[in-house]
Design a binder for these strands. Sequence first.
DNA 1: GACCGCAGCTGTATCGATAAAGAAGCGGTG
DNA 2: CACCGCTTCTTTATCGATACAGCTGCGGTC
Lengths: 339, 339
Amino acid sequence: MTAGQGTVTMGDVARLAGVSKMTVSNVINNRPGVSEPVRRRVLEVVRESGYRINVSARTLRSGRTGVLGLAVPHVNSAYFGLLAEHVIEEAAGRGFHIAIEQTGAAAEGEFEVIAQSHKLQFDGLILSASGLDPADQRLVGGGIPMVMLGERDFAASFDHVAMPNEEGTKAAAEHLADRGCRRIAIVTGALGDGDVNVVTRRHRGYLAALLERGLAAEPELLVALDEMNARGGRRAAHRMVDSGLGFDGAVAVTDGVAQGLLRGFADRGVRVPDDVRLIGFDDVPDAEIMVPSLSTVSPDHRWMAAKAVELVTARIEDPERPATEHTAPFTIAERESTR
Amino acid sequence: MTAGQGTVTMGDVARLAGVSKMTVSNVINNRPGVSEPVRRRVLEVVRESGYRINVSARTLRSGRTGVLGLAVPHVNSAYFGLLAEHVIEEAAGRGFHIAIEQTGAAAEGEFEVIAQSHKLQFDGLILSASGLDPADQRLVGGGIPMVMLGERDFAASFDHVAMPNEEGTKAAAEHLADRGCRRIAIVTGALGDGDVNVVTRRHRGYLAALLERGLAAEPELLVALDEMNARGGRRAAHRMVDSGLGFDGAVAVTDGVAQGLLRGFADRGVRVPDDVRLIGFDDVPDAEIMVPSLSTVSPDHRWMAAKAVELVTARIEDPERPATEHTAPFTIAERESTR
DNA sequence: GACCGCAGCTGTATCGATAAAGAAGCGGTG
DNA sequence: CACCGCTTCTTTATCGATACAGCTGCGGTC
């Protein structure tokens, strides 16, 4: 059978098996009230005829698709690739399919996905928000079960799985201090960036660590990125070295940025960890492979994925349940860059 | 309006606007034959009522969803992330949405996606196949417009956008020879791997280059990976050094493997490019950022994405058109690892 | 023997949109 | 004035599956 015409419908199966459509439906969906001989006969015909259920029709009637949307800033990013892989697995365990969408890390893109998620027939949406303003009215209009992933400050209105932004960065900076660093820089997005929440939270954790270790938080040690990725990190490293900024440790806001810093330091002959110790955030798979391998804050990605999927499915079941917030556990992965 | 009950249908809009459903449908779909005042009135009501079209109903009637599936081995992979980003853009330009699926780089996963693509309502499928046997009968049953991406040997039966596997690797090996390398290793998957076609094709290109440059193809210079990724590459590098294999250049089957080799050489104190020159294949974004930056075969990813999308859409329009095959253009990106 | 309960199956309306054919209004024409 | 062609809008019949009420046959009960 080729494509096109030859679509076998449930009615055809019913006719061929000598039963009603409803009986076929009951067999297909494993519902009780069908005798064994009839069930067998129907399944036989289904196989022979090559019948495949029409999902549009089913969805039109039942209202469920079994597809969850996962909206990430960029599919082309180690961190989100990793996350996606875990979410796909977790969702499969609960009988859901994941469709990945890209928002472009902009509030506009995120609203677009929310608005389109009904068009794409999602039963629920896991949104790895970055540009979103939690107060934006457009968030309310969605009317689709939704979980925020990796951001904070949505607690009141949405289910939310947060990264340990503050705690993680605090531990990272303390880790550097424990290795003997005294002038620790933080390389992060500028405020007003798309990733305001992540940026400010992580900065706050850094400050808390300095305070606790009795180190001064000098303003020039806050290095602002022009672009929050490896390219931006590389340029930042050049500026840090060229401007004569004295520092013996650096906390990077993400592993991607840290990778850029490594590259930028290499460009200028600054050795890691001999001259400068460096720590990142995320623990992407590459961190282990980089030269030198990258110490980093390692949130439990699987835990986050599992929690997110658990929360959406729970909300699909009961749209009225109160929103909850959860922060992922983390460890510090110590590697060559801080040894 | 919250979730749940308050679903506004096209009929409601029609009633509120004092026109028929069909007129609303015509307005929604920008079809001609609606006067300006009526059009405005309908759009007004659509806005006020918060009406959103029910895609299942539309799909049930029209048979089109506007969604293309993109099936890749792993979403958690720099190369496929990059590819996906381009495909998403190209598809958007033609009014299609992309849903990304993961096959797990196994033939089973790939069939699963093909089989499920009707369930997920894809109008067409772009399949980045790796484990698939082109002769497998199950391929025929799909009945969905499909394009193979990155593999070869499907010419007869499917539209196909190929990587310049043979040509690219040949150029890569020649590039090393031109830089003075005399004992060039190739690090690649074992035959019988999931990626047989890629592996054999790239190996063939390597052999052709050696032949052309009058270099001997010694068997021990073929290094087989136990895993075709960075981890496997790292282990391979260790073996290459520890076993006393003499070599002054290496062609890696992918950039991911090359990254692992870089790491593995660093572990053993082998310097790139001073002691060994290294070249990869794919030109993932990381290649520029690695330390040292990685020379690599750079296929035109945008071109591939554009071609793939063009081919599926063409096949959706005309399922009977003959299958065609296209090979992506490429350049050699020269960076530090071969300088 | 009339009646009940129940498992197993059927008939029909319905989900929300769209395609195709048909009606209504209107200026122009012989 | 009957008729035409055109635009604008309406009507009716689906698309394929599912929910629900209803029908049937049959063993059991008083």
